[in-house]
């Protein structure tokens, strides 16, 4: 009788305290697609990335870089015949396609791609207008710019500061150029309403990234609705990025202020990367202040962050940009 009681108690406890997690299969019918990423603008060479994605539920095909594809790249209707890079030269790397020269503002760019394995894709965009002349105030820990704009809607500005450090010890002379890091301040405080207007992304005219690669602070088009744009941010420099110098070395710093103008597609694409990469644990101040969609969206508590695309039948983005920068500035 006693054993029966013990058995019943153990069984009851086993039911009561069974695990709160259960495995189940995710059955999603998806097929592979072409992923296209291209940011035509003022960079001297336009790079086109084209890959084949892998639908979930199967094996990853790591040879997703396409050996061959029929790729068309038109600027204002004129075919530019993109070339496949077989080896690295300059900023062009193997596996991608490239078109020499930059793309002027206002130009219409169209891309179509077909590889025979999955559905062909296409996309088009218009390169934004040039960034107007701007005035700036720069110190070693802050920058602000001011410019007048003509068209308010769908105009997205970004701000970045480049730092060049030259170390001369008499024998050698080292020159390093790095991006200054945008820092949190009143214009961007994690988790508060005020961070809605801007985000920090990595952008070099070739790739765009989210968290952890900050070098350009991008504002939404809200800031350009009054006809005048005033942007400001605190900046800092990670000394680890720069060459070490001794007390006797001669060290000089100089800066460039860059103002970007992004197309709406580029902003939305960067935004979706930015939000999806946020993690609730990023901020020590707890869940209240964490941006919710990138973190809680994964748990179904908030609306999901979807991968923005303007590529028909595929994924990725074709989006243009322009940029204006100052000459080198010394703060002495």
């Amino acid at each position: 009788m006693r054993y029966r009681h013990y058995t019943l108690i153990i069984l009851a406890l086993a039911v009561l305290f069974q695990g709160c997690e259960r495995q189940f299969d995710i059955d999603i019918s998806a097929t592979g697609k072409l992923f296209l990423q291209c940011f035509p603008g003022q960079r001297d060479t336009t790079i086109i990335q084209l890959y084949k994605t892998n639908p979930l539920g199967g094996k990853v095909d790591f040879s997703s870089i396409l050996d061959e594809a029929d790729l068309s790249f038109k600027v204002n209707g004129v075919e530019c015949n993109p070339q496949k890079a077989r080896q690295r030269f300059g900023s062009v790397y193997p596996g991608c396609w490239f078109v020499p020269g930059n793309v002027p503002s206002g130009a219409k760019v169209e891309i179509t791609a077909e590889c025979g394995i999955v559905d062909p894709v296409g996309a088009s965009t218009v390169i934004p207008a040039l960034v107007p002349e701007f005035s700036y105030i720069l110190s070693d820990d802050a920058v602000s710019i001011s410019l007048n704009v003509d068209n308010a809607a769908n105009t997205y500005y970004g701000l970045a500061v480049i730092c060049e450090r030259t170390v001369d010890n008499g024998d050698t002379r080292e020159v390093w150029t790095v991006n200054m890091d945008p820092l949190d301040d009143g214009g961007k405080i994690a988790g508060m309403p005020y961070n809605r207007t801007c985000m920090d992304i990595e952008f070099d005219g070739r790739t765009v990234g989210g968290k952890g690669k900050d070098n350009v602070r991008v504002w939404s088009d809200e800031v350009s609705k009054e006809g005048k744009v005033d942007l400001a941010m605190r900046i800092g420099l990670d000394d680890g990025k720069l060459p070490i110098y001794d007390m006797g070395d001669s060290v000089s710093l100089r800066y460039k202020v860059r103002v970007y103008r992004f197309s709406r597609e580029l902003f939305l694409y960067a935004e979706s990367l930015f939000l999806s990469s946020y993690d609730v644990n990023t901020y020590s101040s707890g869940i209240i202040s964490a941006p919710v969609s990138g973190s809680w969206g994964k748990y179904g508590i908030t609306p999901p962050v979807l991968s923005f695309t303007n590529v028909s039948n595929g994924l990725g983005v074709l989006a243009g940009w322009t940029m204006r920068e100052t000459e080198w500035i010394s703060l002495d």
Binding site: A30, D61, G209
Partner: peptide, 25 residues
């Protein structure tokens, strides 16, 4: 069951020379 959003595609990390083409995580 209720519904939620999960990814449907994966883009394998592509590393060529010193460049991460898609993501450097």
């Amino acid at each position: 069951g209720n519904r939620m959003t999960v990814p449907t595609q994966v883009l394998p990390q592509v590393y060529t020379n010193d460049v991460w083409l898609v993501d450097n995580d």
